[in-house]
């Protein structure tokens, strides 16, 4: 079976849709940018230090990235169910879980480009320059695995319950909490919540100037364990909810 062709088809479709709706994408990014400016200049008016301001840039960019990654899994699935195409995605010699993973990879490629552009624009506009290190791709990728895990859970819930938008909104605010958690507490909880530890390492790299080699084995172990635990739990829960949806005949419904 030619899995690479399936992967290529998913990625290609993703980019065609983005290109076709470029104006909409740019406008929503514009809205996010205005929100960022309000937060950033609000903080500056309180005489926040350079490190806090740079941390805000990284945290905000990570929040946007997480929200996009997560919505690809949950909102994207819901959209397919609503359009009537979800069942067609199940009619493939590959598996739906793989199809979902390919969609995630496709959106990651695009979102990373946006993330990078966003960082550069924010640095230019604010005059707060980060230490850009290509190794950040690895950290962002690993950090987002936990978000994809949560996305799988919400995607599974969407299959069964359909209307889970309220939960999506709550989660987006939760992501902010997870990102700012280290500045609120030094409790061990920061190793267990999704995205938090990854964001700490990304901050150390982009604000503190550390490289991938500077992190300890423990740093990586915490990140990997955290991310993969969320990802696998997400996939397991998704599998269970997918089965419930199949048992109740809910896949094609919206």
């Amino acid at each position: 079976m030619k899995e690479h062709i399936i992967f290529y088809s998913i990625v290609k479709k993703h980019f065609i849709e983005l290109r076709r709706y470029l104006l909409n994408t740019l406008m929503s990014m514009g809205g996010v940018f205005i929100l960022f400016m309000l937060v950033f200049f609000g903080l500056r008016s309180f005489d926040a230090g350079a490190e806090t301001l740079q941390g805000t840039i990284v945290g905000f960019a990570m929040w946007i990235f997480a929200a996009m990654a997560y919505s690809e899994m949950s909102w994207g699935l819901l959209q397919e169910a609503r359009d009537g195409t979800l069942e067609q995605l199940y009619l493939t010699p590959s598996t739906f879980k793989r199809i979902s993973a390919y969609r995630v990879i496709a959106s990651f490629i695009f979102q990373f480009m946006l993330f990078a552009a966003f960082l550069v624009i924010m640095m230019v506009v604010t005059g707060e320059y980060l230490i850009l290190n290509p190794g950040v791709v690895v950290l962002v990728g690993l950090t987002l695995l936990s978000i994809y895990g949560i996305g799988y859970i919400m995607g599974g819930l969407s299959l069964v319950f359909k209307k889970v938008q309220a939960g999506n909104q709550i989660l987006q605010f939760m992501f902010i909490l997870f990102l700012v958690l280290p500045s609120i507490t030094s409790h061990n909880i920061i190793y267990f919540t999704p995205i938090t530890w990854g964001n700490v390492l990304i901050n150390r790299m982009l604000v503190g100037g550390m490289s991938l080699l500077d992190f300890s084995l423990l740093d990586y172990s915490i990140l990997l364990l955290n991310s993969f635990a969320y990802l696998f739990t997400g996939i397991l829960i998704f599998s269970y909810l997918e089965r419930v949806a199949k048992q109740r005949g809910l896949l094609g419904h919206y």
Binding site: M1, K2, I5, Y8, L89, I99
Partner: peptide, 9 residues
């Protein structure tokens, strides 16, 4: 093209 690709073609 997309649906052909979805079946590995």
């Amino acid at each position: 093209e997309f649906f052909a690709g979805l079946h590995g073609r």
